[in-house]
Design a binder for these strands. Structure first.
Lengths: 333, 333
DNA sequence: CCCCCGGCTGGGACCGGTCTCAGTATAGCG
DNA sequence: CGCTATACTGAGACCGGTCCCAGCCGGGGG
């Protein structure tokens, strides 16, 4: 059956099921008038072989693809997207093209997106979705093409391009600690995100290293809204807060200003990401810059190497950078 | 030659150039050892026929596509992207798939992206790039498939789904006028964007309608940075400023706060878009909400209708909505 | 008992490219 | 002048699906 790198074809399925390729086609296209037992045999064969229909062949004969092409603007304000865009540019430079699908971060949807891309014909896949279950889902599809994960935070998950989350948190925390803060609280991202967990763990680690007890954990969902809400529940004894991203810090700044607190006099704030707005919050936000574009470029290097079957360190990690602005100062007392 | 909806094939080119399909293939793949005059004949035939290589056929035989698939997160913070995402969801509901390419907004890059998608096989195209030159470039490719433009602001450009820019500006301006402002300044977006021009024109129109002289025009590039800068050049006599988007308003708020002005007491500010941060600026921003997702859904309706050759009003326009928060108040005096 | 009809299945052409292999001039050499 | 090497071109198979049409089988009607 499957010659060289190619997957099984309709003929392979037909042979295994003991029918003709035509019958397989009919099953796939939900034709009526197929004896149930025949259909079952075909379905079973498809299952066993892991057969996937080749959309290129289909498009060739039907002349239609059932797909809408979209041309969209380049976005660099949002981390993962600027990574994807940098990847696209780098790929072009390497003579490769890219096609993209966006999806909710559920296993089912990612699996569907993956299957679609596979059918459409791709030589490699880059996934920017930092949920554990998604990595598992991608793993489960097992397509036989190189897969590289983006922005995993440096966890070992096969090939990956990431930014060192540990180092980033350490930069933020040590900045606060050096200013003299000891009551530092953390507002984490949603539990489903690897990065949120990594940042939280790093926060707790650094605190313990200094012999400090972590303050009660608060959680948001990355949005400014959730930062606003979290700010209402801050520990009164905290003198500094480390937010897992800039958006939440922005929301918190809103709440704090509204409730009469002055940042950084009353409370120091640190964000994470250094997005485009961070310079323009009031006051401008101290944060940790992540080189999202760099991750995209790195990913292409990895893909190209994997495509050429070059052994390459499969997980590449970039270092973040501390950007000190005006939301941090020594504690008040 | 070209049967039904399909474009010309290699054989058509070969016939016209008086060579074999194989020779055409060699020319396309930059093979050496082709007599210059032969090559020229082939190139000329390709040109005349508007031939485009079918990537599906190529992928079928080579087993490679030279493309990297990307799976990215859903983004709803940024207008055009949430449009694209809504389009993707709606398309799926209609049994259609989508593939996306992002690109700088230059004619050359968009043309390239379009050619690529066309080769890859698409039945329709949605373009979210509001430059005039881009619409022209897309027009020039003339692919013979339905094309729908997104977010054009309601300009007539073939099929389009848009938000009524005129109405949006009118909402913002009339809100300010009703509060008693007469010295209203406008900070527009970059001149290359249709939407920036439309908003500016609408601003001037409304002013003139009320017998008011527009104040000197300022321009930014949509970023918070540029809003910050623009705020430094505001007309001292202005009592209100209408920004062409929220990001610029956010940057301006930063500048104003820093320079001791109190919004809205000293100056009223209105933005445009109602993005996720607008609720959390200090103070929260009065702005005009655009239903970006609605545009995406509308676009699918249009595409489906065009695919079915249903006559449908080709330009669909959605109404924006005024969101009054805390950056507007009556003028001081 | 034969024929026809309908349900189900198979065979082969075809989509538009690329690949392999072979063929035809022309030039170069002895 | 004949033969081989070289430059260029052409013919046909093939990739993996879908389409059209034919064939097989069993059952019901004449």
């Amino acid at each position: 059956m499957a010659r060289d790198g190619r997957g099984p074809s309709m003929h392979d399925v037909a042979a295994r099921a003991g029918v003709s390729h035509q019958t397989v086609s009919r099953v796939l296209n939900d034709f009526e008038g197929i004896r149930p037992e025949t259909r079952e045999r075909v379905v079973a064969a498809i299952e066993q072989l892991g057969y996937r229909r080749n959309l290129a062949a289909r498009a060739l004969v039907t002349g239609r693809t059932q797909t809408i092409g979209m041309i969209g603007p380049v976005v660099t304000d949002i981390g993962p997207l600027s990574t994807l865009h940098a990847l696209e540019r780098s790929a072009r430079a390497a003579g490769l093209h890219t096609i993209m699908t966006s999806t909710e971060a559920t296993a089912a949807q990612v699996t569907e997106a993956f299957e679609f891309l596979l059918g459409r014909g791709i030589d490699a896949l880059a996934v920017a979705a930092q949920h554990q279950e998604i990595m598992d889902a991608v793993e489960a599809v097992n397509p036989g093409i190189p897969v590289v994960h983006l922005l995993t935070g440096g966890q070992p998950v096969g090939a990956a391009a990431a930014i060192d989350q540990n180092a980033g948190v350490r930069l933020a925390m040590e900045h606060l600690l050096d200013l003299g803060h000891t009551r530092i609280q953390h507002v984490m991202g949603p539990q489903t995100y690897q990065e949120a967990l990594l940042r939280r763990d790093a926060y707790e680690l650094v605190m313990r290293e200094r012999g400090l007890e972590p303050l009660p954990l608060l959680a948001g969902d990355w949005t400014a809204d959730s930062g606003f809400e979290a700010a209402a529940s801050l520990d009164p004894s905290a003198s500094a807060v480390f937010f897992a991203n800039d958006q939440m810090a922005l929301g918190a700044l809103h709440y704090l200003t509204e409730s009469g607190a002055v940042v950084p006099r009353d409370l120091s704030i640190v964000g994470f990401d250094d997005n485009a707005e961070a310079r323009h919050t009031v006051p401008p936000l101290t944060t940790v810059r992540q080189d999202f574009a760099g991750v995209g470029r790195l990913a292409v290097d990895i893909v190209v190497a994997m495509l050429a079957r070059d052994p390459l360190p499969s997980t590449q990690v970039l270092a973040p950078e501390l950007i000190v602005r005006y939301t941090t100062a020594p504690p008040r007392s």
